[in-house]
Amino acid sequence: MSADSDPLSPTRSFQGLILTLQRFWASKGCVILQPYDMEVGAGTFHPATTLRALGPKRWNAAYVQPSRRPKDGRYGENPNRFQHYYQFQVILKPSPPNLQELYLESLFAIGIDPALHDLRFVEDDWESPTLGAWGLGWECWCDGMEVSQFTYFQQVAGQECAPVAGELTYGLERLAMYLQGVDNGFDLNFNGLEGAEKVTYGDVFRQAEEEYSRHNFEYADTDKLFRNFAEAEKECRALLAAGDRGEGARHLQVLPAYDQCIKASHAFNLLDARGVISVTERQSYILRVRELAKACGAAWVQTEAGGA
């Protein structure tokens, strides 16, 4: 079967793109993880990135992460903007000297030939105020379209990265739209088959986009979300306190505490989408989540995986 007719070719199916990227990064020594089982705003929130980026140990991983940005909901009417989408995330610690070349090789693997396409590294310094994280890098352009984020983490969860990890994030829908040559994300061929057997991205997700947009903007119970935020914040702190065995001893409760930080962050995102948080309050909520992330980061480096 030639690449063009293979339903699992990255240019023919959404799942083919994911499988190709997974195989590629597996061949480069990454562990291929599965998505984190919680609502997160981006692949960076997965503890495999946020926490594993900290500490001295080698860590190479790749995974798909479903990401939720409640505010980006458009009731399934916008072809480019969804409140739920997929990121493909790669994290390599320490960042290898040929990271740019590896990245370009991965593009080649999914069918982007550098002799035909204009590939560019355009300055884009990444910062996540909620995670207390920042790094320098680029948005990677293919023919004028941003297809990935490329970041050398300098600080995560308030901790200096030593050594620095390199993070690659591929926006899968946009990349697939480009590879398949479709202008509407819902028209993406999901399974690579044709005719009656063809399943599109819209078949899988359009109804979800409609329902969740209503939920995010209209129905989500804000009182409950405010409570959720406060409870998650409280529990995160309580768990961190409970797992803290003092100076020099390993911390025993970082991952569960970090889950609560993720919960608080998602509750905040929903409240923000519901429009019940004023501009000034917004800053203070972001700050509260950041404080949780920082506390988790500080605890993580007192664990085995954190290098303690």
Binding site: P56, L136, Y152, P163
Partner: peptide
């Protein structure tokens, strides 16, 4: 703005440059 990178960045005081 400058940054650290690679294995050398494990040690404090490693070289900083705008990009590697």
């Amino acid at each position: 703005k400058s940054m650290r990178w690679g294995a050398a960045s494990a040690a404090p005081g490693s070289l900083r440059w705008v990009r590697p």
